[in-house]
């Protein structure tokens, strides 16, 4: 175990390139310095102790942005972009955790995430820059646009009573639009939840397709994440069929996004953050109330999207969006009016 005091005596190792002779592939960028050095001194993350301060001779790791069971995302400074005077040389950089990175197909899983995200060109889907391998430390990583703003779980902490419709619609409509687009392209997200949606200064962004999947015939040849060997989810947002059978379809994304929307509207998760299977067995669907601040026209669509049974969850992301904008043809039977 490295002692950060030995590796980091002046507290700067985390925010600046090492002072000693740079390796040969680092020469071009050795003069690049951080414009805004952080005064803070943080202990070095030990789990990533095998990860160098600069990846692939180009990306200087600056700060941990988020971490989960599989990977960690850092803010990194692109030293090459900075060398050429790029006014905003920062990127988000995702690497797999050390434990997970050792599994044989880990890099393929990361590549799949990169490829799925790149395939989607939509204003409300995060943009990926590239897939890279640091050959020295044998770690694959993705670089992405660095978003500045709040993830929806942060927003929910700041707004525990939920959002009024005027604000809600500005998040929900782009989010549903992004999801409808992805599904239209044959891409399933697989892990929609508040922390995977960012309200950034450039608008809403859906991100983290790490558990995503392309439907049959889309992106043929791309390694698929085998749900038999690798089954993961977020308990409060995973549909029952995903929890029980590992079945991932667009319909599972619908359940998840409906939980997110309900929570944004009311401040409360529809089923107390319980796994959907437990919520179903406790019949929590029966007492579900429409969020008070949600326009009445949205509720039938949202309630349908929250159905535990895939057969009852008969609505698409596009139909939800239309129901929320008020331009809905869904549900069709409401259009049938008595002729008198």
């Amino acid at each position: 175990m490295t002692d950060p005091l030995q590796t980091d005596p002046d507290g700067q190792a985390l925010v600046a390139p090492p002072d000693d002779d740079p390796p040969s592939d680092f020469t071009y960028y050795a003069f690049a310095q951080s414009k805004n050095r952080e005064p803070a001194r943080l202990s070095a993350p030990s789990a990533f102790s095998t990860m160098p301060d600069v990846l692939a001779g180009r990306y200087c790791i600056e700060r941990l942005l988020g971490a989960g069971g599989m990977g960690a995302v850092y803010r990194a400074r692109d030293l090459l972009a900075q060398q050429y005077g790029d006014p905003d040389p920062y990127v988000a950089l995702k690497v797999l955790n050390e434990d997970f990175a050792e599994s044989p197909d880990a890099s393929a899983v990361l590549y799949s995430e990169f490829c799925l995200t790149r395939y989607l060109r939509h204003d409300n889907v995060l943009r990926v820059h590239g897939f890279h391998v640091d050959t020295a430390c044998e770690r694959a990583f993705i670089t992405m646009e660095l978003m500045r703003g709040l993830t929806l779980d942060q927003l929910l902490c700041e707004r525990p009573l939920g959002l009024p419709w005027q604000e809600l619609r500005q998040i929900v409509l782009p989010l549903l639009d992004a999801l409808a687009y992805a599904h239209g392209c044959g891409v399933i997200h697989g892990d929609v939840k508040p922390s995977n949606v960012m309200l950034s200064e450039n608008g809403v962004r859906l991100f983290d397709f790490g558990l995503g999947r392309a439907e049959e015939g889309v992106l043929p040849g791309l390694p698929h994440l085998s749900r038999e060997r690798f089954n993961a989810w977020t308990p409060g947002y995973a549909a029952p069929e995903l929890l029980e059978y590992g079945q991932l379809s667009a319909s599972a994304d619908i359940y998840a996004v409906a939980c997110v929307i309900y929570e944004l509207a009311s401040g409360k998760h529809p089923f107390r953050h319980l796994p959907s299977t437990q919520a179903r067995d406790e019949h929590l669907h029966v007492g579900l109330q429409a969020p008070a601040r949600l326009p009445k026209r949205c509720w039938p669509a949202l309630r349908t999207a929250l159905a535990f049974d895939t057969g009852d969850r008969a609505i698409t992301a596009g139909q939800m969006r239309d129901a929320f904008t008020g331009s809905s043809s869904w549900p069709w039977y409401r259009k049938i009016r008595p002729s008198w």
Partner: peptide, 8 residues
């Protein structure tokens, strides 16, 4: 509440 859980 937000962490992805691996079934294993």
């Amino acid at each position: 509440q937000e962490l992805t859980v691996n079934a294993g």
